[in-house]
Amino acid sequence: MQKTLDQFAIGEHGIVRSVSGEGKIKRRLFDMGITPGAEILLRKRAPLGDPLEITVRSYELSLRITEAQCVLLSVAQEGEEVAK
């Protein structure tokens, strides 16, 4: 199942399939390690609901919901490995 990062529940993780968005934002997401194949865990939402905190390439990154909408992932199923 595929959905964008902003639709993830807290604690849910998945593998990046594609990154869209305007040039500068997309480039920034790439530079920070959000590239296809990267595994992302949605850690939490900020106290006011936005931005989000994620773990990617074993570090913590925060981004807004509008930016998270650019990242499409396939959700990791419980107990089964996501086919690469």
């Binding site: 934002i25 570090y59 925060s62 930016e67």
Partner: peptide, 9 residues
């Protein structure tokens, strides 16, 4: 402006 920021350890 975008807000894509590392949360350092």
């Amino acid at each position: 402006p975008p807000f894509i920021m590392e949360l350092p350890a």
